[in-house]
Every structure is written in structure tokens, then in C-alpha cells.
């Protein structure tokens, strides 16, 4: 029996809100699919568009960038820069023909373990029907 397609997702989480929120999901023993490998960065504002492209190039089926809620950034305004930059990356990815569902941005505070859990569940469900990402994957 062929295995069901399990999308590979890289989640870039800011250290102060979203990573703490995902920790809270763990502390509260919430359950979500193991498809996501988290990478903690200091701030969503430090997310270079190259990181996102690099993840797709290396075979990610989906990429999530999650930061503090607008106005709540630990670094004052880093997530505002992230928001602008990420909107641009989203347009670029759509322009080159990548399914828009593959790249998501979310705001998860340190108190939102439930929200993080739901985002991961939904993301995995959304990616399953569209199958593996091949558009940007480096041929090997």
C-alpha cells in the first residue's frame, strides 16, 4: 500500500512569540501532525526571502513564517518589516507559479498554543491534496 503523501514543512518561528507559543502547545500536550520541522529565528523581521526560497529549493512542500502579532514585536517593529517583505515574497512565488497555499505567514503569540496547533493542522491538510512541490525543488 502506497503511503499517503506527507508534506514536508519548515516553520520559521520567532523566538519570543511563536516559538514560545509552540512550546506552550507542547506543555499543554496539544497534538498536531509531525510534518513540521521548526527553526527558531530571533525575529520574523530577520526572515530573508532567501530562506524561504532556499527551503523550497531544498524540497519543502510548505513554508510557514510565524511572528508576534503586529504591534507586539519583541523588537518593536521587526514583524512589520516581515509583513511587508513576506507579502512581496508571496507575490513572487505566485508569479513563478507556485501554489499560493504552500507559503503561509501567521501571528502566534506566546499564549497561543491552541492557535499554533490549529495552524499546523490546517496547513498539513491544505498541502496534502496538492501533492509534492516540484516547481522549485533542486533536481538531484
Amino acid at each position: 500500500m502506497a503511503d499517503e503523501f506527507e508534506p514536508k514543512i519548515v516553520a520559521f518561528l520567532c523566538k519570543w512569540c511563536s516559538s514560545a507559543g509552540s512550546d506552550l502547545a507542547g506543555v499543554s500536550r496539544m497534538q498536531y501532525p509531525p510534518n513540521v520541522i521548526p527553526i527558531t529565528v530571533m525575529c520574523s523581521g530577520s526572515m530573508s526571502p532567501l530562506y524561504i526560497l532556499s527551503a523550497f529549493k531544498k524540497g519543502a512542500d510548505g513554508v510557514l513564517v510565524s511572528g508576534c502579532h503586529p504591534g507586539d514585536c519583541h523588537y518593536i517593529k521587526g514583524n512589520f518589516y516581515a509583513r511587508r517583505r513576506i507579502a512581496l515574497v508571496k507575490k513572487l512565488l505566485e508569479f513563478i507559479g507556485l501554489e499560493p497555499q504552500r507559503f503561509q505567514m501567521s501571528w502566534v503569540s506566546a499564549a497561543e498554543g491552541t492557535k499554533y496547533t490549529q495552524i499546523i493542522k490546517d496547513f498539513v491538510e491544505e498541502l496534502k491534496p496538492i501533492g509534492p512541490q516540484t516547481k522549485l525543488r533542486r533536481s538531484s
Partner: peptide, 9 residues
Amino acid sequence: EGCGTCSAT
């Protein structure tokens, strides 16, 4: 503070 916003810019 090491936020890295400069680096992404």
C-alpha cells in the same frame, strides 16, 4: 539586541 532585521534588509 540581535534581532536580525538589518541582516534581512
